[in-house]
Amino acid sequence: MSATKPAPSPSATMVRCAQDWRRRAREQTIISLLILLVALVALLDVIRPGMVSLNWISSTLLYAAPLGILAAGQTLVMLTGGIDLSVAAVATAAGYVMASQATAQGDARAVFFGLGIAAAVGLVNGIGVGVLRVQPLIMTLGMSLVVAGFLTVYQVLAVASAAAVPGFVTAVGSGTSLGFIPNSLVLWVPIAALVIWGLRRSGYGRLLYAVGDNPTAARLAGVRVWEVLVVDYVLSGLLAGIAGIDLAGLTSTATIDLGNSFLLPSIAAVVIGGTSIFGGRGGYGGSIVGALILTVLVSLLTIIDAPEPFRQVLYGAIILGVAAAYTRVVNE
């Protein structure tokens, strides 16, 4: 950048210094998270020597992908100070509808149906939160009930057509290329790149932070906050839909509780990744590492035969501990 400015003013230099410092601070959060991730993997290797291999990494990434994509939508929503409790129901709906329509409609149209439903639910959420100013928690909770209920009914009605996950979806969700590269990275990597780039370098990304930090200030600066929120929830719905289809591919089956166990991990991944539950700070990089940490944690707990209850308590303690720590940082 300095090449275009032969004589940068002192204050301009200061800006850049400040930006350097800030970038370092942000990377440090991610670095400490990465250290935690590596430590967990090392622990895993100590407990069960030889377990960590290329194959293990490959399957961990495959399992982390749906959570990571779900966490992308959750990140976008939480950056605005909201929360989307409908992501699990939407993911399930997208995966199940896609699988049950595949035989009758053809694979591509079935995927389109699934994503369409996901976006539609997101749109309703967005209108509720952005236009009618319903608390995000209540709005998305209510929509998750509606979606899950409809799905149950749909299952009864559509019982004739068996749910069959299309082959290419399974290939993407659970296959690998060249022996170890997980295919679902085809979905996850572009999404991650787009979200990270968008949050840093696009006008819309800026507005997500602005609305989350201070909606009043955003409004006074001429931002129509509702437009930002409606698009935000649609994006969250779409990403949840993609995650649901990926998940259906991963498990090769589609049931009506496909994604249910992913709701709280999707929030936990974002919170661990350093995105503030109050909005305005954070990013998707942290959420990715958060999703990986959670996935590794699950395999760790499985290996040491930790009972499910223990796992749950740990989840709760982590969310609360991390949220309290970040709150302290914000209030300092």
Partner: peptide, 26 residues
Amino acid sequence: ATKVPDIVVTLAMSFVWGGVALLVLP
């Protein structure tokens, strides 16, 4: 004590209480 929003605290605690319930009776 934590000044974390009620929603987050009780969401986290729902895991804890749910986990304890599973511990009592799997």
